[in-house]
Design a protein around this nucleic acid. Structure first.
Lengths: 188, 188
DNA sequence: GCAGTTTATATCATATCTTAACAAAAAATC
DNA sequence: GATTTTTTGTTAAGATATGATATAAACTGC
């Protein structure tokens, strides 16, 4: 590969290479693509804002922040790390998005602001599907503590939630009850 | 290689070429088809509204859901992984694109923003073809839960949707009814 | 800590690419 | 054949990419 290419394909190629070797130096990239150091820097800046990559002194490395996506690998509320297994995503009116570590923070965020949410999706605990948070069932304070406390776990169906409750305890709640419960214990 | 042709066959040829090489520059296309830069740009604009292709500075790339250059293989709304089987692609005015994991998120995105969509394409559940989301039929809340909940599945024809419904239940909806339904249950 | 070296960032001038508006050419319609 | 529509090319203005240079920051040895 020596011909000069367009920025996007060069960046795509950097990504592919990086996925093989994990780390690359600026010099390696300059030699391969035959562009200036500055151009490589700018490519890396660009990729870094995409979140998959992290610049280090002298080069780049893959940014393996969990298994997640862009820069926001931490909860918009509590700053804890976000696992795909418990994540909670709110899209606000206006297009802004918040990603939360678990339903605990997600419900607090939904209830604790004047903003209106366009959608709220949470990861179903059993199957990992993203479900409408208003229709979901919640088990609060069970024996399973994954993230924040009180532990708040999200299920697609009441049946699933009840089966879980039978084994691990906790209180079964709807969106409304869970939401007010979490908000009030945080204010008392 | 080829003499001047009509726009649609030139665009089809661009697509075929692009599927081989992933990325093409404007220059390559100008040389091959012996038309002006402007004509190529217009061809690419046209292809881009189809959602399968993405213009980048200096050329085009396949809008691959697998390994896009910025790396986002996750739903623009819920952050879940996107499968080609259920994907939903919206091209907004201005050229920006959003890829969604399934019609559930796609419809929410379409309805939940002030932006206007240039096109919306969703994968037909039975055959996998990309179809116009405004003309599609939707089955909501069937027994088949592939992605988000409430499960929202997309069909090219009402007939297909009804046959599916006979076996797996759910509610049959048009774009309008599905869109308002999903939006309202998200706001209740 | 200090100097010397390397690497990063900021800014500028230049080159390249993109877009919109207009006009010419070709094709389709009547 | 004249009119309308579609396609195409030209131009100019704006946006983006690039490389060179200068300055700031980070590493290296001591």
């Amino acid at each position: 590969m020596s011909k000069k290419t367009i920025p996007s394909s060069r960046q795509a190629e950097i990504m592919r290479w990086l996925e093989e070797v994990d780390t690359l130096t600026i010099k390696q990239l300059v030699n391969k693509f035959e562009v200036s150091v500055m151009t490589i820097h700018r490519d890396l800046d660009h990729l870094q804002t995409g979140g998959k990559v992290q610049k280090v002194h002298g080069g780049v490395m893959l940014a393996q922040i969990g298994e997640n996506r862009e820069g926001t690998a931490v909860c918009s509320l509590c700053n804890d790390k976000i696992s795909a297994h418990t994540q909670f995503v709110i899209t606000w009116e206006g297009g802004e998005q918040g990603t939360y570590c678990c339903p605990h923070c997600g419900l607090l965020a939904l209830n604790g602001t004047a903003k209106t949410a366009v959608s709220g999706l949470a990861s179903d605990f059993l199957y990992g599907r993203m479900i409408n948070v208003y229709q979901a069932s919640y088990i609060i304070d069970s024996d399973v503590q994954l993230c924040c406390i009180p532990s708040t776990i999200c299920f697609a169906t009441v049946t699933d939630a009840k089966k879980f409750q039978r084994g691990f305890g906790g209180q079964l709640m709807t969106y409304m009850t869970a939401s007010t419960h979490l908000t009030t214990i945080h204010r008392q």
